[in-house]
Computed example of a mutant assay.
Amino acid sequence: MTDSTETGFADAVVRLAHLVDHVFDEVSRRHDLTAAQTQLLCVLVGGPIGMTDLRRALKLEKSSLTGLVDRVERRSLVTRVRDPRDRRAYQIALTEEGTRLAVLTHRDVAAGLDALAAGLPAAELTLATSILTRITDDAAVGTAGLPQPAS
């Protein structure tokens, strides 16, 4: 195991991202889903979401999201419902079967991710949670220093 002082922050985050991807892949396989479908279901656990907000949450291009939603809709896991605030727009909502599967996959992903940190002392886990929450919250509001594409 590599000493954390020998590894830079970016390297550690990349390694963590691979572990998180692995958890999503394993959970997805167990439930006959792709990792992208599992992520979609996990996002929708909180309730119906419009396509624009869903695209932002999943960091997908419009065409990729449309294809993903179409595939999950064909499996009767989600449905398009009229947005109550804008009759021209739709939100994506879980069906009854989608809700059941979303709750299961969300629980399994959370358990897998919690297992990654199971050996940490409580104080370190609290600190890690605080740091990761700050990073993700900052990225969500656009204050993180995300690299911009080259011109």
Results as ranks from 00 to 15, higher is better:
63 S>V: 15
27 V>M: 04
40 L>G: 01
9 F>S: 11
62 K>I: 06
26 E>H: 04
17 A>H: 15
84 P>V: 12
59 K>W: 04
17 A>T: 12
91 Q>M: 05
40 L>V: 06
62 K>P: 02
6 E>M: 06
25 D>W: 04
24 F>H: 11
44 L>H: 02
35 A>P: 15
36 A>I: 09
67 G>D: 13
49 I>L: 12
59 K>M: 05
78 V>Y: 00
67 G>Y: 11
9 F>G: 06
3 D>N: 09
69 V>Q: 00
68 L>K: 02
32 D>C: 03
56 R>Q: 08
34 T>C: 05
93 A>T: 05
44 L>T: 01
32 D>F: 04
79 T>R: 14
63 S>K: 14
8 G>H: 06
25 D>I: 02
29 R>I: 00
81 V>M: 09
30 R>Q: 12
46 G>E: 09
86 D>M: 08
12 A>M: 09
60 L>R: 14
14 V>I: 15
90 Y>T: 01
74 R>L: 10
64 S>P: 08
45 V>G: 10
42 C>Q: 07
12 A>S: 13
89 A>Q: 13
20 V>R: 12
90 Y>K: 04
10 A>D: 07
87 R>C: 01
55 R>G: 07
32 D>V: 11
16 L>I: 15
19 L>N: 13
37 Q>Y: 10
20 V>T: 13
68 L>Y: 00
54 L>W: 03
18 H>I: 14
13 V>N: 10
43 V>T: 10
35 A>M: 11
35 A>L: 06
73 E>S: 08
53 D>E: 06
53 D>K: 05
62 K>M: 02
67 G>V: 10
14 V>Y: 13
44 L>N: 04
81 V>Y: 02
21 D>M: 08
12 A>H: 11
92 I>T: 03
25 D>P: 06
74 R>P: 02
3 D>F: 07
18 H>E: 14
27 V>Q: 01
41 L>S: 06
84 P>Y: 10
8 G>D: 13
70 D>E: 07
80 R>L: 09
83 D>T: 13
59 K>G: 04
12 A>V: 10
34 T>H: 06
19 L>Y: 10
78 V>S: 00
42 C>D: 02
38 T>G: 10
17 A>N: 15
46 G>H: 14
78 V>M: 00
24 F>M: 05
23 V>Q: 05
29 R>H: 02
34 T>W: 03
15 R>L: 14
59 K>H: 02
19 L>E: 13
69 V>N: 01
37 Q>R: 12
17 A>G: 15
40 L>K: 01
15 R>Q: 14
61 E>D: 15
14 V>H: 13
26 E>G: 03
66 T>E: 08
24 F>A: 01
74 R>Y: 03
76 S>F: 03
74 R>I: 04
31 H>Y: 03
20 V>G: 03
